[in-house]
Design a binder for these strands. Structure first.
Lengths: 193, 193
DNA sequence: CGAAAATTTGACATGACTCAACTGGAGTGG
DNA sequence: CCACTCCAGTTGAGTCATGTCAAATTTTCG
């Protein structure tokens, strides 16, 4: 559980009491593979800090194709930001890819803490700033790069879990079909020699 | 200048003194069309609040193709977030599309104000939260939708300036070539009758 | 008015998709 | 522990969306 504290301490200094208050605002939960943490039409009530395991955040379009927005493993955050921030029903899904342990915080608890401990609002501001930068970079990658290059960036972004993910999920992250991904991978392997 | 105050007041309440301090932290500037506010390799020293006119934020890939990350008109913010937040050299450009007036704030001034007036850090947190949501939505649109649909979303996102932008810039925002954009637009016009 | 830039248009090329069939491994129940 | 089923992954043929190249035309602006 101190993984969370470590993470936050990289950006702001908390004293013992504040750390305790922070931890008390989270609920610890266990999830097993294939469980759904969020489905379309539901409100994303909690922001999720992943302690172990892997989550996937995705949405489904009119043609029933899935599109992965992000993966989250140890030390990363997950949540449908639109729904979590507005507390309105969202249109995305969060599923468990590998058995996971996570710390969950409701928006209300979060906002209370921001009032009580401004340093935590600062931490969150920094967290969101960084997410925004990462997202903008990914957007540019998608505009500029062909699938093959995007795959290489993906490998760099998720070095710890790249071998634990089903190919179809990687394909849906890259924005291509599983069939095309399979062919592309075959081509890359052949080219390596 | 009170456009800025109006904007901020939608999320936090400031008293006269705080408003003044906020305004003092910005510099007012005038720009004319085609001026560059930021070029590759430079540090994005200031966060920009557009009072009037239009800016475009873009980057250029290895094939020299431009990719527009965003447009900014009256009431919107602009800046290379990666560079502004880290104060390291960035890889993007900001140009003036239509003569503009803007308020500029350095990262240092901004951080000082966060310490002095926590409400402003809150405002900024909310601003970034919203940017993040908008960005994630655009990312999903790019993964899911064909160019034609993306164009419709673009029209909804920029209703005020959609007729003031060169087609090549719209194309580079959508992630397609100007030629293809031209053909697509022709097709859409013909279909309308 | 003239030069440069933006837009349009057409022929052709290609990256990525669809559909369909096949293979193989993981999980489940008998 | 086997047999069965069910996904995930692979592969091939044909197609479609979008790109490239090149030339003609229109617009912008000094």
């Amino acid at each position: 559980m101190s993984l969370l504290i470590e993470n936050i301490s990289r950006f702001v200094d908390l004293d013992r009491e504040e750390e305790q208050e922070l931890l008390d605002s989270f609920t610890f939960r266990n999830f097993s593979a294939k469980e759904m943490l969020l489905e379309e039409g539901e409100v994303c009530k909690e922001h999720i800090f992943v302690v172990s395991g892997i989550l996937r955040h995705y949405s489904i379009d009119e043609e029933l194709a899935e599109h992965t927005l992000s993966f989250a493993s140890s030390g990363w955050w997950a949540g449908d930001m639109y729904s979590f921030l507005s507390q309105k029903p969202g249109d995305s899904y969060i599923e468990v890819i590998e058995d996971a342990e996570a710390l969950m915080q409701t928006r209300q608890k979060q906002l209370e803490l921001f009032d009580r401990i401004p340093k935590l609002e600062r931490f969150y501001r920094i967290l969101i700033e960084r997410s925004l930068v990462a997202n903008q970079q990914r957007l540019m990658e998608n505009l500029q790069l062909p699938a093959e290059e995007r795959y290489k960036r993906f490998l760099e972004r998720y070095p710890d879990i790249k071998y634990n993910l089903p190919q179809k999920d990687i394909a849906s992250y890259l924005g291509i079909t599983p069939q095309f991904f399979s062919k592309m991978k075959g081509r890359l392997l052949r080219e390596e020699y």
